[in-house]
Computed example of a mutant assay.
Amino acid sequence: MQHWVRRMKVRNFIQSFDFDAAEMKTILELARKIKASPLGYRDYLHGRVAALIFEKPSTRTRVSFEAGYVSMGGHVIYLGPNDVKLGVREDIADMARSLSRYIDVAILRTFSHRAILEFARHFGKPVVNGLSDMEHPCQALSDFFTIQESLGGIKGKKIAYVGDGNNVCHSLLLTAARLGAQVVYATPKAHAPNPKIMQVVRHEAKRTGAKIQGFTSPAPAVRGADILYTDVWVSMGEESKAASKKEQFKDFQVNQALVRKAKKTVKIMHCLPAHRGEEITNEVLEGSNSIVFDQAENRLHVQKAILIYLSGSNVGRLHGVRSGT
């Protein structure tokens, strides 16, 4: 696990713990200002260039990063699955060292978390994790922005996650532990979160007072929940496991019967894309309690704040934001 917790000399956002709690709160506050007045940030990244290096195709991650960077005056180069194969066409180190001569920040979406760490080791400039097999930190930080926006804060609020103990779950738990939040998760026993991740989560939760609890059935997890969150059962790259996983997860669907076990005011979240009729029903996704598309929008604002924070020089100080470098 040492490869996962190692900190980089250059400030990156590769894993949730790359930011401490104070930094997370600074970024969330900056995101609130950006959302309220986006035109005030239209020149923050003028003259800068970002590369989106995606081994996996994406809709929301690509568009939210690209639109966000361009809207702040920067330029974006997209390298998709047909353009780049990390460690196949050439060594990751060679690619990173070459690209560092051309661009200011790299945003990677990869199958392997180790690949992002290796890239960052040789890139020497900010690297952002747009998704890996281990974490999805931008999603989690954005999710907490959405939760705060919807509920007015996280103190005393219960967040229930139902589904696969995957990268989204990992980052949600890590971010909750760092911020001192309460998250209760329910996964099939065979699909629980990574044990090494959970060691880190529990250690941090003891320090911050966060409340983290796991179940192997959804009903006790969602009882009295303020937030009910789910994700797809079959992630990209797991297509060969689809039939088996759907059978194992059939009792973990977020449907109206499960929603009724939470608070009447419970808010429904899903990081999308959704497989309607599998992990969540159409009725719940489109119901009055759903904040799924607010959640999707907020990726834009929070990622803009992250990019400003990591940009260094005088950019982060323009509105009193402490730079991450």
Rank of each mutant, 00 (worst) to 15 (best):
L151Y: 11
E149K: 15
G152R: 11
R317P: 13
Q256P: 05
Y41K: 02
K125Y: 11
P126N: 09
I280D: 00
E239Y: 06
S313N: 10
R48M: 14
I77K: 06
A140G: 09
K157W: 15
L151T: 14
K35L: 10
L272Y: 08
D226Q: 14
Y102F: 15
I14K: 02
H301V: 05
D43M: 06
G68R: 01
G130F: 03
A160L: 09
A225T: 14
L173M: 11
Q253V: 15
Y44S: 09
T187N: 06
R260C: 07
A225G: 14
A93Q: 08
A93E: 07
H275P: 13
F19Y: 11
P188W: 04
E23I: 15
A31N: 02
S16D: 12
I197W: 02
H275Y: 15
S323C: 14
P137K: 04
H275R: 14
A225S: 13
Q295N: 07
R202V: 15
F111R: 03
I306E: 02
H3T: 07
S217L: 15
A93P: 07
F215G: 10
Q213F: 11
F54P: 03
Q2E: 13
G152W: 09
K250M: 10
P126G: 07
P126I: 11
E247L: 13
A221P: 13
A160Q: 01
P273A: 08
L307A: 01
R207F: 14
H113W: 01
N167I: 13
R97T: 12
N166T: 12
L172S: 04
A221I: 15
L174A: 01
E238Y: 12
N314T: 15
R48E: 12
E29S: 06
K304A: 03
L179G: 00
I159W: 04
I107E: 00
S142Y: 02
F249W: 12
L79K: 12
R121I: 03
K246T: 12
Y185C: 10
H270D: 05
K25G: 04
T61S: 02
Y185F: 15
R42A: 14
I154A: 01
Y44D: 12
A36L: 09
